[in-house]
């Protein structure tokens, strides 16, 4: 089992909020901690609701879906891998899939799950790196020129068709990709 509270000293505040949310999900996973869940709920549920409304859902449908998404967070806490995603990223993927299901009435084929064996718990340093990189990416999105940022947001709100989605986001994705690649290699090694 990995522990984050007290075990990791951050050199800067970059990613510390992200690391906090990881610790909350771990408490939900290991202790079914309702107080930790309530804090996750207060932060993420209103964002998920806003995300779904911007994607075209009515306020009542968005409210219902946001509750469903948060219930999924509770039930699937054991599947969250903090060396490959921030909590915000993980919640986004659950909300996106809920949107496809609710608004488009389609199945969404997902890649084969790699899963974590008991011997393949994520490495703390990798978790720290990934969470910091996620915080930097959020900052980079905030700093994009207005026009470019709106285009990226519209793509994720489902406002652009796939042929309108541009090849270039203007976001620095190279580092975060390399970090995830390393985590995958470690996982493959542990599986073989």
């Amino acid at each position: 089992m990995y522990r984050f509270e007290g075990g990791v000293t951050m050199k800067s505040t970059t990613g510390s909020a992200h690391l906090e949310w990881v610790a909350h999900v771990v408490r939900v996973r290991d202790a079914r901690d309702e107080a930790a869940f309530a804090e996750l709920f207060r932060h993420f549920a209103p964002r998920v609701k806003a995300f779904l409304m911007k994607s075209g859902a009515s306020a009542s449908l968005a409210e219902e879906c946001a509750q469903e998404v948060m219930a999924t967070v509770w039930h699937k806490a054991h599947l969250f891998d903090p060396s490959r995603a921030s909590v915000a990223t993980w919640v986004f993927t659950i909300a996106r899939n809920r949107r496809i299901d609710a608004l488009r009435k389609q199945r969404r084929p997902e890649p084969e799950d790699l899963g974590w064996g008991p011997e393949a718990e994520p490495d703390q340093a990798e978790v720290l790196d990934l969470q910091q990189e996620s915080a930097r990416l959020t900052e980079a999105l905030r700093l994009l020129p207005e026009k470019q940022r709106v285009l990226v947001e519209r793509a994720y709100f489902g406002d652009l068709s796939h042929s309108e989605i541009a090849e270039e986001t203007g976001l620095p994705l190279g580092t975060i990709k390399s970090r995830i690649r390393l985590a995958l290699e470690r996982l493959r090694h542990a599986m073989s």
Partner: peptide, 30 residues
């Protein structure tokens, strides 16, 4: 890994969404 980095962009977009307030009993209902 490349897909996961695009999912991270989605996570950043979600993080930057302005809050839409949930109904008062939303947590209890969840």
């Amino acid at each position: 890994a490349r897909l996961a980095s695009f999912d991270a962009v989605g996570g950043a977009v979600l993080e930057e969404c302005e809050d839409a307030s949930m109904t008062p009993d939303a947590l209890a209902a969840t």
